[in-house]
């Protein structure tokens, strides 16, 4: 390919309900690379876009949860396969966005993909690890099943553009939730790539929705939207937590406040968006 060929640029859009719409507001904002050079105009999601994403996520969650845990694991694993095959592309995006060295970017992407694989393996372990039979003192068969909270809104890490969105996205998804992910405002390209890959990896539309835009504009709406069950604000500045949690309390949301990417934190995050549903049934002839 000739060097002087004019590059075909990509228009970065939102991912809502399996489709790639522009923001209904028509707004975009400029994303620049680490040196300040223009990369793209990215859709700036509005509260209405968020509302649409919640509707999509709510509908998709039932479908997602009704699939077998085995199947959900395969779908997440499939996404990891997609990511692996586009490893270079993601790494390049990370390099551009974060201004890190190529080698470091590749390592970061590798860690992110490996973590996705880790989550793929969780889907059919959760019930056994967090649930179980309860030996009640009576003639009842009693078992506790971990079930998803429902719709989880999460805010991606502002700087770790790929690795920092894997945990906030796939912990909740592996547990059977649907997710509305607000990508890093300044570094949204890897999130956009993830969205494109998810569209070709058997996720029912709406299980993963990715918005780009301003945290200060959208996080409060996520917190106050009653039909969002869980909120992951670990990546939001802690000075905002009081207001966001206060607002989330309006519908008694499950709120996760930590940003760690270690395994223990990952499990704790996952547990935050898992409910225990305990079923009793009489035992008699």
């Amino acid at each position: 390919m000739s060097d002087n060929r004019l590059e075909v640029r990509k228009t970065y859009k939102l991912l809502v309900n399996g489709a790639f719409p522009r923001s209904e507001s028509g707004r975009t904002y400029e994303v620049v690379d680490a040196e300040g050079k223009f990369i793209a105009n990215v859709a700036q999601a509005s509260r209405k876009d968020l509302r649409e994403a919640v509707v999509a996520a709510r509908a998709a969650q039932a479908k997602w949860w009704s699939q077998s845990a085995y199947n959900r694991g395969q779908v997440i694993y499939r996404l990891a396969e997609m990511a692996e095959s586009r490893h270079n592309e993601i790494a390049e995006a990370v390099e551009i966005c974060e201004g890190v060295k190529a080698k470091e970017a590749r390592k970061s992407v590798s860690r992110g993909i490996d973590r996705m694989v880790w989550y793929a393996g969780w889907t059919d372990k959760i019930a056994q690890v967090f649930g179980g039979a309860n030996p009640v003192a009576g003639p009842y068969f009693n078992f506790s099943l971990p079930v998803p909270s429902g719709v989880v809104a999460a805010i991606a890490h502002p700087t770790h553009s790929f690795e920092g969105l894997v945990d906030v996205t796939f912990g909740a998804i592996a547990a059977g939730n649907s997710v509305i992910l607000l990508a890093s405002t300044e570094r949204p390209l890897p999130a956009a790539l993830l969205g494109e890959m998810s569209a070709v990896s058997d996720f029912p539309g709406g299980v993963l929705n990715i918005l780009t835009g301003r945290v200060e504009e959208l996080a409060p709406v996520m917190a106050s939207h009653e039909d969002i069950d869980g909120l992951d604000i670990g990546n939001v500045s802690s000075s905002e937590h009081v207001d966001l949690i206060s607002s989330a309390a309006g519908s008694i949301k499950r709120v996760f406040e930590d940003s760690g990417i270690d395994e223990a934190t990952a499990v704790r995050r996952m547990r935050t968006f898992i409910e225990t549903s305990t079923v009793w049934h009489t035992k008699g002839q």
């Binding site: 009640v136 009842y140 009693n142 506790s144 409910e275 549903s277 305990t278 079923v279 009793w280």
Partner: peptide, 18 residues
């Protein structure tokens, strides 16, 4: 969507049951 579901019984509680 409920934390406790009783089948063919109701309002049963037990320390082992979440």
């Amino acid at each position: 969507r409920a934390g406790v579901i009783w089948a063919n019984t109701y309002n049963k509680f037990d320390p082992t049951s979440p």
